[in-house]
Amino acid sequence: MTNQTDTAVRESRFSLEAASNYAVIVAFIAVVIFFTFAAPGFMSGENIFNLISNKVVLLAIVALGMTIVIGAGGIDLSVGVSIDLSSMIFIMMIAAGYMGAFAVMGGLGAAFCVGLLNAFLINKLKINPFLATLGVLFIGKSIQQLSTQGGVPIYLTRAEYAAPFDAIARTSLLGIPTPIIILVVCIIGVYLALHRSVFGRYVAALGAQADVARYSGIRVPFHMSIVFISCAVLSGITGILLSSTVRSYVPLAGDAFLLDAIGATFIGTAISAERRPSVLGTLIGVALLAVMRNGLLLIGWNFFWQQVGIGVLVFLVLGLSFGLRKRAE
Protein backbone atom coordinates (compact mmCIF):
# COMPACT_ATOMS: atom_id res chain seq x y z
CA MET A 1 0.00 0.00 0.00
CA THR A 2 2.71 2.43 1.05
CA ASN A 3 4.81 1.31 -1.90
CA GLN A 4 2.02 2.04 -4.26
CA THR A 5 1.50 5.57 -3.01
CA ASP A 6 5.24 6.16 -3.14
CA THR A 7 5.40 5.20 -6.78
CA ALA A 8 2.35 7.25 -7.53
CA VAL A 9 3.89 10.28 -5.85
CA ARG A 10 7.16 9.80 -7.66
CA GLU A 11 5.45 9.44 -11.01
CA SER A 12 3.41 12.56 -10.47
CA ARG A 13 6.56 14.40 -9.47
CA PHE A 14 8.31 13.39 -12.64
CA SER A 15 5.43 14.43 -14.83
CA LEU A 16 5.06 17.73 -13.00
CA GLU A 17 8.72 18.51 -13.35
CA ALA A 18 8.77 17.56 -17.01
CA ALA A 19 5.67 19.66 -17.61
CA SER A 20 7.27 22.64 -15.90
CA ASN A 21 10.16 22.57 -18.37
CA TYR A 22 7.84 22.72 -21.33
CA ALA A 23 5.47 25.38 -19.96
CA VAL A 24 7.06 28.18 -21.97
CA ILE A 25 7.27 26.25 -25.21
CA VAL A 26 3.69 25.05 -24.88
CA ALA A 27 2.59 28.61 -24.10
CA PHE A 28 4.44 29.90 -27.17
CA ILE A 29 2.88 27.31 -29.46
CA ALA A 30 -0.55 27.92 -27.95
CA VAL A 31 -0.21 31.68 -28.45
CA VAL A 32 0.89 31.25 -32.07
CA ILE A 33 -1.99 28.86 -32.81
CA PHE A 34 -4.46 31.16 -31.08
CA PHE A 35 -3.44 34.21 -33.08
CA THR A 36 -3.31 32.25 -36.34
CA PHE A 37 -7.03 31.66 -35.98
CA ALA A 38 -8.06 34.77 -34.05
CA ALA A 39 -6.08 37.38 -35.96
CA PRO A 40 -6.41 37.25 -39.74
CA GLY A 41 -3.15 38.34 -41.30
CA PHE A 42 -1.04 37.15 -38.39
CA MET A 43 0.43 34.25 -40.32
CA SER A 44 1.01 36.26 -43.51
CA GLY A 45 4.60 36.41 -44.72
CA GLU A 46 4.57 40.18 -44.65
CA ASN A 47 3.47 40.40 -41.04
CA ILE A 48 6.01 37.86 -39.84
CA PHE A 49 8.77 39.58 -41.79
CA ASN A 50 7.88 42.96 -40.28
CA LEU A 51 7.60 41.45 -36.84
CA ILE A 52 11.09 40.00 -37.05
CA SER A 53 12.87 42.90 -38.70
CA ASN A 54 11.23 45.64 -36.61
CA LYS A 55 10.49 44.18 -33.21
CA VAL A 56 12.41 40.96 -32.71
CA VAL A 57 15.85 42.11 -33.91
CA LEU A 58 16.18 45.08 -31.55
CA LEU A 59 14.89 43.31 -28.45
CA ALA A 60 16.71 40.05 -29.20
CA ILE A 61 20.15 41.69 -29.34
CA VAL A 62 19.64 43.44 -25.98
CA ALA A 63 18.19 40.25 -24.50
CA LEU A 64 21.26 38.30 -25.65
CA GLY A 65 23.44 40.72 -23.69
CA MET A 66 21.17 40.35 -20.70
CA THR A 67 21.43 36.56 -21.04
CA ILE A 68 25.22 36.74 -20.64
CA VAL A 69 24.92 38.98 -17.57
CA ILE A 70 22.16 36.98 -15.89
CA GLY A 71 24.04 33.79 -16.78
CA ALA A 72 26.97 35.13 -14.76
CA GLY A 73 24.68 35.78 -11.81
CA GLY A 74 24.42 39.52 -12.33
CA ILE A 75 21.87 41.88 -13.78
CA ASP A 76 22.27 44.98 -15.91
CA LEU A 77 19.72 47.72 -15.36
CA SER A 78 21.76 50.10 -17.49
CA VAL A 79 21.12 48.50 -20.91
CA GLY A 80 18.86 51.46 -21.65
CA VAL A 81 21.76 53.82 -20.99
CA SER A 82 24.01 51.85 -23.35
CA ILE A 83 21.31 51.93 -26.05
CA ASP A 84 20.64 55.64 -25.61
CA LEU A 85 24.22 56.85 -25.35
CA SER A 86 25.26 54.77 -28.34
CA SER A 87 22.32 56.12 -30.31
CA MET A 88 23.01 59.68 -29.12
CA ILE A 89 26.71 59.71 -30.06
CA PHE A 90 25.95 57.98 -33.37
CA ILE A 91 23.31 60.53 -34.34
CA MET A 92 25.34 63.50 -33.10
CA MET A 93 28.39 62.38 -35.10
CA ILE A 94 26.30 61.90 -38.25
CA ALA A 95 24.79 65.34 -37.71
CA ALA A 96 28.30 66.78 -37.33
CA GLY A 97 29.20 65.32 -40.71
CA TYR A 98 31.36 62.35 -39.73
CA MET A 99 31.46 59.26 -41.93
CA GLY A 100 28.94 56.56 -41.07
CA ALA A 101 31.62 54.06 -40.05
CA PHE A 102 33.19 56.49 -37.58
CA ALA A 103 29.79 57.35 -36.17
CA VAL A 104 29.06 53.65 -35.62
CA MET A 105 32.40 53.25 -33.87
CA GLY A 106 31.70 56.33 -31.76
CA GLY A 107 28.33 54.93 -30.74
CA LEU A 108 29.72 51.52 -29.86
CA GLY A 109 32.58 53.26 -28.02
CA ALA A 110 30.05 55.10 -25.85
CA ALA A 111 28.32 51.81 -25.02
CA PHE A 112 31.70 50.24 -24.29
CA CYS A 113 32.39 53.03 -21.77
CA VAL A 114 29.09 52.31 -20.01
CA GLY A 115 30.10 48.66 -19.74
CA LEU A 116 33.54 49.66 -18.50
CA LEU A 117 32.00 51.89 -15.82
CA ASN A 118 29.73 49.02 -14.70
CA ALA A 119 32.73 46.68 -14.59
CA PHE A 120 34.71 49.19 -12.52
CA LEU A 121 31.89 49.68 -10.02
CA ILE A 122 31.27 45.96 -9.67
CA ASN A 123 34.86 44.70 -9.59
CA LYS A 124 36.82 47.52 -7.99
CA LEU A 125 34.26 49.06 -5.68
CA LYS A 126 32.59 45.68 -5.03
CA ILE A 127 29.10 47.07 -5.52
CA ASN A 128 26.35 44.54 -6.10
CA PRO A 129 25.46 44.56 -9.85
CA PHE A 130 21.85 45.55 -9.23
CA LEU A 131 22.83 48.67 -7.32
CA ALA A 132 25.84 49.52 -9.49
CA THR A 133 23.84 49.45 -12.70
CA LEU A 134 20.95 51.24 -10.97
CA GLY A 135 23.34 54.08 -10.15
CA VAL A 136 24.57 54.13 -13.75
CA LEU A 137 20.93 54.24 -14.91
CA PHE A 138 20.38 57.44 -12.87
CA ILE A 139 23.63 59.01 -14.07
CA GLY A 140 22.86 58.09 -17.69
CA LYS A 141 19.52 59.87 -17.41
CA SER A 142 21.23 63.05 -16.25
CA ILE A 143 23.84 62.87 -19.01
CA GLN A 144 21.13 62.60 -21.65
CA GLN A 145 19.07 65.42 -20.17
CA LEU A 146 22.11 67.67 -19.91
CA SER A 147 23.21 67.04 -23.49
CA THR A 148 19.75 67.46 -25.03
CA GLN A 149 18.39 70.44 -23.05
CA GLY A 150 16.21 68.20 -20.98
CA GLY A 151 15.22 65.63 -23.55
CA VAL A 152 14.73 67.25 -26.95
CA PRO A 153 14.91 64.53 -29.63
CA ILE A 154 17.29 64.91 -32.56
CA TYR A 155 15.69 64.17 -35.93
CA LEU A 156 17.88 63.67 -38.99
CA THR A 157 15.13 63.03 -41.51
CA ARG A 158 16.54 65.29 -44.26
CA ALA A 159 17.80 63.48 -47.36
CA GLU A 160 21.42 64.62 -46.94
CA TYR A 161 21.76 62.40 -43.87
CA ALA A 162 20.05 59.36 -45.40
CA ALA A 163 23.09 57.48 -46.76
CA PRO A 164 24.55 55.96 -43.55
CA PHE A 165 21.10 55.10 -42.17
CA ASP A 166 20.06 53.39 -45.38
CA ALA A 167 23.34 51.49 -45.46
CA ILE A 168 22.48 49.97 -42.08
CA ALA A 169 18.71 49.61 -42.10
CA ARG A 170 17.68 49.33 -45.75
CA THR A 171 20.31 47.15 -47.43
CA SER A 172 20.21 43.40 -47.73
CA LEU A 173 22.58 40.54 -48.41
CA LEU A 174 21.31 37.60 -50.49
CA GLY A 175 17.81 38.93 -49.96
CA ILE A 176 18.15 39.03 -46.17
CA PRO A 177 17.97 42.52 -44.61
CA THR A 178 21.15 43.67 -42.88
CA PRO A 179 19.56 44.00 -39.39
CA ILE A 180 18.56 40.34 -39.49
CA ILE A 181 22.09 39.38 -40.57
CA ILE A 182 23.47 41.40 -37.66
CA LEU A 183 21.08 39.56 -35.32
CA VAL A 184 22.14 36.17 -36.66
CA VAL A 185 25.82 37.08 -36.22
CA CYS A 186 25.10 38.17 -32.64
CA ILE A 187 23.16 34.97 -31.91
CA ILE A 188 25.98 32.79 -33.25
CA GLY A 189 28.60 34.83 -31.39
CA VAL A 190 26.80 34.71 -28.05
CA TYR A 191 25.89 31.04 -28.53
CA LEU A 192 29.53 30.11 -29.16
CA ALA A 193 30.72 32.24 -26.25
CA LEU A 194 28.16 30.95 -23.75
CA HIS A 195 27.63 27.34 -24.76
CA ARG A 196 30.71 26.28 -26.70
CA SER A 197 33.71 27.96 -25.05
CA VAL A 198 35.76 27.99 -21.88
CA PHE A 199 34.49 31.49 -21.22
CA GLY A 200 30.94 30.14 -21.25
CA ARG A 201 31.81 27.51 -18.65
CA TYR A 202 33.34 30.22 -16.44
CA VAL A 203 30.24 32.35 -16.82
CA ALA A 204 28.09 29.38 -15.84
CA ALA A 205 30.33 28.73 -12.83
CA LEU A 206 30.06 32.38 -11.77
CA GLY A 207 26.32 32.26 -12.08
CA ALA A 208 25.87 29.00 -10.22
CA GLN A 209 28.40 29.43 -7.39
CA ALA A 210 30.40 32.64 -7.48
CA ASP A 211 32.48 31.73 -4.41
CA VAL A 212 33.34 28.28 -5.70
CA ALA A 213 34.36 29.87 -9.00
CA ARG A 214 36.67 32.24 -7.12
CA TYR A 215 38.23 29.46 -5.06
CA SER A 216 38.81 27.38 -8.20
CA GLY A 217 41.05 30.11 -9.51
CA ILE A 218 38.77 31.67 -12.11
CA ARG A 219 39.71 35.30 -12.64
CA VAL A 220 36.36 36.63 -11.50
CA PRO A 221 36.92 40.39 -12.07
CA PHE A 222 38.31 39.81 -15.55
CA HIS A 223 35.41 37.63 -16.64
CA MET A 224 32.82 39.83 -14.96
CA SER A 225 34.25 42.80 -16.88
CA ILE A 226 33.92 40.97 -20.19
CA VAL A 227 30.37 39.98 -19.27
CA PHE A 228 29.22 43.54 -18.54
CA ILE A 229 31.13 45.10 -21.42
CA SER A 230 29.71 42.63 -23.94
CA CYS A 231 26.21 43.29 -22.66
CA ALA A 232 26.76 47.05 -23.04
CA VAL A 233 28.21 46.71 -26.54
CA LEU A 234 25.36 44.44 -27.68
CA SER A 235 22.93 47.07 -26.34
CA GLY A 236 24.97 49.67 -28.24
CA ILE A 237 24.40 47.72 -31.46
CA THR A 238 20.67 47.87 -30.76
CA GLY A 239 20.98 51.62 -30.20
CA ILE A 240 22.57 52.11 -33.61
CA LEU A 241 20.04 49.86 -35.37
CA LEU A 242 17.21 51.73 -33.62
CA SER A 243 18.57 55.13 -34.64
CA SER A 244 19.16 54.00 -38.21
CA THR A 245 15.61 52.72 -38.51
CA VAL A 246 13.92 55.85 -37.17
CA ARG A 247 16.69 58.26 -38.28
CA SER A 248 16.59 60.04 -34.98
CA TYR A 249 17.65 59.94 -31.36
CA VAL A 250 14.90 60.13 -28.76
CA PRO A 251 16.32 60.58 -25.24
CA LEU A 252 15.56 57.79 -22.76
CA ALA A 253 14.01 55.63 -25.50
CA GLY A 254 16.21 52.70 -24.49
CA ASP A 255 14.52 52.27 -21.13
CA ALA A 256 11.64 50.55 -22.89
CA PHE A 257 13.91 47.60 -23.68
CA LEU A 258 15.09 46.98 -20.12
CA LEU A 259 12.05 45.23 -18.72
CA ASP A 260 11.35 43.23 -21.88
CA ALA A 261 14.97 42.05 -22.02
CA ILE A 262 14.92 40.94 -18.39
CA GLY A 263 11.51 39.36 -18.89
CA ALA A 264 12.58 37.47 -22.04
CA THR A 265 15.74 36.16 -20.39
CA PHE A 266 13.94 34.92 -17.31
CA ILE A 267 11.10 33.42 -19.33
CA GLY A 268 13.86 31.62 -21.23
CA THR A 269 15.30 30.15 -18.05
CA ALA A 270 12.10 28.16 -17.68
CA ILE A 271 13.00 25.82 -20.55
CA SER A 272 16.10 24.42 -18.83
CA ALA A 273 15.78 21.97 -15.98
CA GLU A 274 18.30 23.96 -13.89
CA ARG A 275 16.51 27.24 -14.60
CA ARG A 276 19.63 28.68 -16.25
CA PRO A 277 19.55 31.35 -18.93
CA SER A 278 20.38 30.10 -22.41
CA VAL A 279 20.51 31.62 -25.88
CA LEU A 280 17.71 29.39 -27.15
CA GLY A 281 15.54 30.10 -24.12
CA THR A 282 16.02 33.85 -24.45
CA LEU A 283 15.12 33.76 -28.14
CA ILE A 284 11.92 31.87 -27.30
CA GLY A 285 11.20 34.50 -24.62
CA VAL A 286 11.75 37.33 -27.11
CA ALA A 287 9.56 35.58 -29.70
CA LEU A 288 6.82 35.02 -27.13
CA LEU A 289 6.77 38.69 -26.10
CA ALA A 290 6.91 39.91 -29.72
CA VAL A 291 4.16 37.55 -30.90
CA MET A 292 1.93 38.51 -27.98
CA ARG A 293 2.35 42.22 -28.68
CA ASN A 294 1.82 41.83 -32.42
CA GLY A 295 -1.10 39.42 -32.09
CA LEU A 296 -2.91 41.54 -29.50
CA LEU A 297 -2.45 44.56 -31.75
CA LEU A 298 -3.90 42.65 -34.72
CA ILE A 299 -7.00 41.56 -32.79
CA GLY A 300 -7.53 45.22 -31.96
CA TRP A 301 -6.27 45.60 -28.41
CA ASN A 302 -4.69 48.99 -27.86
CA PHE A 303 -1.25 49.51 -26.37
CA PHE A 304 -2.60 49.76 -22.81
CA TRP A 305 -4.39 46.43 -22.95
CA GLN A 306 -1.37 44.85 -24.63
CA GLN A 307 0.66 45.73 -21.57
CA VAL A 308 -1.91 44.11 -19.28
CA GLY A 309 -2.11 41.04 -21.52
CA ILE A 310 1.65 40.59 -21.59
CA GLY A 311 1.94 41.08 -17.85
CA VAL A 312 -0.73 38.44 -17.22
CA LEU A 313 0.87 36.03 -19.67
CA VAL A 314 4.34 36.42 -18.14
CA PHE A 315 2.83 35.96 -14.69
CA LEU A 316 1.03 32.78 -15.76
CA VAL A 317 3.99 31.28 -17.61
CA LEU A 318 6.39 31.97 -14.77
CA GLY A 319 3.86 30.81 -12.22
CA LEU A 320 3.38 27.55 -14.09
CA SER A 321 7.03 26.85 -14.66
CA PHE A 322 8.38 27.94 -11.25
CA GLY A 323 5.34 26.88 -9.25
CA LEU A 324 5.22 23.38 -10.73
CA ARG A 325 8.94 22.94 -10.37
CA LYS A 326 9.13 24.02 -6.75
CA ARG A 327 6.17 21.84 -5.91
CA ALA A 328 7.95 18.90 -7.52
CA GLU A 329 11.05 19.32 -5.38
Binding site: L259, V308, G309, I310, G311, F315, L318
Partner: peptide
Protein backbone atom coordinates in the same frame (compact mmCIF):
# COMPACT_ATOMS: atom_id res chain seq x y z
CA UNK B 1 5.12 41.20 -14.19
CA UNK B 2 2.69 42.67 -11.65
CA UNK B 3 4.12 46.13 -12.37
CA UNK B 4 3.33 45.67 -16.07
CA UNK B 5 -0.21 44.61 -15.25
CA UNK B 6 -0.79 47.53 -12.86
CA UNK B 7 0.66 50.06 -15.31
CA UNK B 8 -1.45 48.62 -18.13
Amino acid sequence: AVMNIAAG
